[in-house]
Each structure stands twice: as structure tokens, then as C-alpha cells.
């Protein structure tokens, strides 16, 4: 039986990890809600953002948190372009399947170009506060992990306010719920959908910055992220942002706790076990609504 302090530490780390998962999964959920697109390239953009943070730190000595000021608008623009220029070109009848392939191709492109530009060497940002840690009731938590969690919480909070309190958020949610009806009400659904994709990709920029703070990065790392993230959105119910956030917290915590008896590699399988169990028992996910039942 592991000691209480170790358990507490694991729970704490699980919450911190779950926060990051929740932020990234919310982006995936947005894409799915808007266009029924499973965006495989989401985690590739995440790694791209982490690399940009590392590169700016290496070249200009910029703190990755400052680099975010550049990467977030950049990724927002890329997301709008991705939706408006590429995804809308696909045939509506086969959109779900073909968009998977298209985003998969983009993920390969990003991975290949990152490998070409920066080689496959593992990289890590060396920060002054990188090794600092706080002591919380006997558990040691790295400051960078706290910063990453803080970023995730702020970003998710902003997203919540944006979706619930602004006119744009209403328009976006209307577009997700019923596109034709939204258009009848005078919403420019094409533009709103584009912006929605931009916001989704912006979460990848924030997540990537958080990731670069305390993780060693390499070009093929994104495959380790996309699996858990996709498991999270299925368990949470495709298209449901709160569902994804809850699933992210639960699964992140489970992963962190299972690392004690099983080791890091086997603990990762918890995502896939949860994915298969969800599809076998409750294929629409545990918090999904009307949308999830048909995909």
C-alpha cells in the first residue's frame, strides 16, 4: 500500500494533468461540434506550438509564456484558414471520413517538417524556474506544472465566458446545435464556423506552451497525445464540452494514480480501456447528448 503522501501527490498531479487534458479536449470537441470533424492534427499543432515556444526561447531567450502572445493569434488564423480553405472543399456526403484523412495528412506534414527543421533530437526548454517546486501539505509540486494548470484553467474559463455570455458564443452554439436554423436567424454560419475552428486551434497553442514548460518534446510526440485525447472526447460524449472536461479530469486522475502500481507505460492503457468500455456499454458517451448518438 503506497503511503498517504504519495497518494496525495498523485492526486494532485492527476488534477494538474487533467486540467491540461480538459483544455485540449475542449478544442477537439469544438471541431466535432461545428463540423463533425475528428481533428487528428490537433495534437500535432500542440507539439508545433511547443516547438515554437522552445525555438523562440533558444533563439531570442523569450519566455515561452511570452511566445504565447504570438502563437495564439497565429494559430487562431491558421484554424480559420484550415476550415475555410480546406475543410469546406470536401464533399458533404463523405465529410466525416475525408476530414479525418485530411487532418491526418496535416499531422504527418507537421511531424515531418518539424523533424526536418529541428531533427528528431529531444528538446527541452531550460528555465530559471524550471526546477523550482512548492510544498503543499507534504507533496512536492513543480512550479511549471502549476503554471501549466493555471493556463489551462484561465483558458477554459475564458472559453466558458465566451460561449455563454457573448453574442459570438451564442451564434457559435446555435451553429453547433442546428446549422440551418442558425442561418435562418441571420447568423453567418460559415464565418462563425471558421472562427470556432480558430478558437479550437488557439487552445492547442496555449496547451503547447504549457507543455513546453515541463516536458521533453520530439516530433513524433503528438501520437502519445492524440490517443488519450480522442479517448477523452468519446468517453465524455462527442460534442459535449463539459463531458470532455469531466472525462479529462477523471481519466487524468486515473492515469496518475495507476502509475504507482503499474508504471508509466501501462498506466497509459487506462485511456484505451475506458474508450473500449465506453463504446461497448454506452456508445454515446457518458455525458453526450443528441449529437453523440449518431457518430
Amino acid at each position: 500500500m503506497p503511503s498517504g503522501a504519495l497518494l496525495f501527490q498523485s492526486v494532485l498531479l492527476g488534477i494538474l494533468l487533467g486540467g491540461l487534458y480538459a483544455l485540449l479536449a475542449s478544442g477537439l470537441t469544438l471541431y466535432f461540434g461545428i463540423m463533425r470533424v475528428v481533428m487528428i492534427a490537433h495534437s500535432a499543432f500542440l507539439i508545433l506550438a511547443a516547438y515554437l515556444g522552445w525555438w523562440l526561447h533558444e533563439r531570442a531567450g523569450l519566455d515561452p509564456l511570452l511566445a504565447m502572445l504570438g502563437t495564439v493569434p497565429l494559430f487562431f488564423g491558421a484554424g480559420v484558414l484550415l476550415q475555410r480553405v480546406l475543410l469546406t472543399r470536401l464533399r458533404p456526403a463523405t465529410l466525416t471520413m475525408m476530414s479525418v484523412l485530411l487532418t491526418f495528412a496535416i499531422a504527418l506534414l507537421i511531424e515531418g517538417l518539424l523533424g526536418y527543421a529541428f531533427t528528431g533530437t529531444q528538446r527541452r526548454v531550460q528555465l530559471g524556474y524550471g526546477s523550482a517546486s512548492l510544498e503543499v501539505f507534504g507533496a512536492r509540486v513543480a512550479v511549471v506544472k502549476l503554471i501549466a494548470f493555471g493556463l489551462a484553467v484561465v483558458a477554459l474559463g475564458t472559453l466558458y465566458v465566451l460561449m455563454k455570455r457573448t453574442r459570438f458564443g451564442w451564434a457559435l452554439r446555435a451553429t453547433i446545435q442546428h446549422r440551418d436554423a442558425a442561418r435562418l436567424l441571420g447568423i453567418d454560419t460559415d464565418r462563425v464556423a471558421g472562427y470556432g475552428f480558430g478558437i479550437g486551434l488557439a487552445t492547442a497553442a496555449i496547451g503547447g506552451t504549457a507543455l513546453s514548460l515541463d516536458t521533453t518534446i520530439y516530433p513524433s510526440l503528438h501520437w502519445h497525445w492524440i490517443g488519450p485525447l480522442m479517448a477523452i472526447i468519446v468517453v465524455g460524449g462527442l460534442g459535449s464540452v463539459p463531458g470532455a472536461a469531466i472525462a479529462a479530469m477523471v481519466l487524468g486522475m486515473a492515469q496518475s494514480l495507476l502509475q504507482i502500481p503499474m508504471g508509466t507505460t501501462w498506466a497509459q492503457t487506462v485511456f484505451y480501456v475506458a474508450l473500449f468500455a465506453t463504446l461497448a456499454i454506452r456508445p454515446q458517451g457518458f455525458f453526450g447528448g443528441r449529437l453523440a448518438q449518431r457518430f
Binding site: F32, R36, V38, I40, T96, M97, V100, W223, H224, I226, G227, M230, A231, V234, L238, T265, W266, Q268, T269, F271, Y272, L275, F276, L279, A280, P283, Q284, A292, Q293, R294, F295
Partner: peptide, 29 residues
């Protein structure tokens, strides 16, 4: 197939990718 095909395409794609990732983990460890 029972798990992957109960719902429509999106879940199937997700399961198919997960299959690769989980088997890689298992066979390496």
C-alpha cells in the same frame, strides 16, 4: 468490431487509431 461499429464512422476511426497506439504500448512493454 463490436465496440467500434456500434455507432457511426467517427468512433470507428478513433478506435482504429487507438488500436495501433495501444498495441504498440503492449508489444513494447
Amino acid at each position: 468490431g463490436l465496440a467500434a461499429l456500434r455507432v457511426r464512422g467517427a468512433s470507428f476511426v478513433i478506435v482504429s487509431i487507438s488500436l495501433v497506439l495501444i498495441l504498440l504500448l503492449v508489444f513494447q512493454s
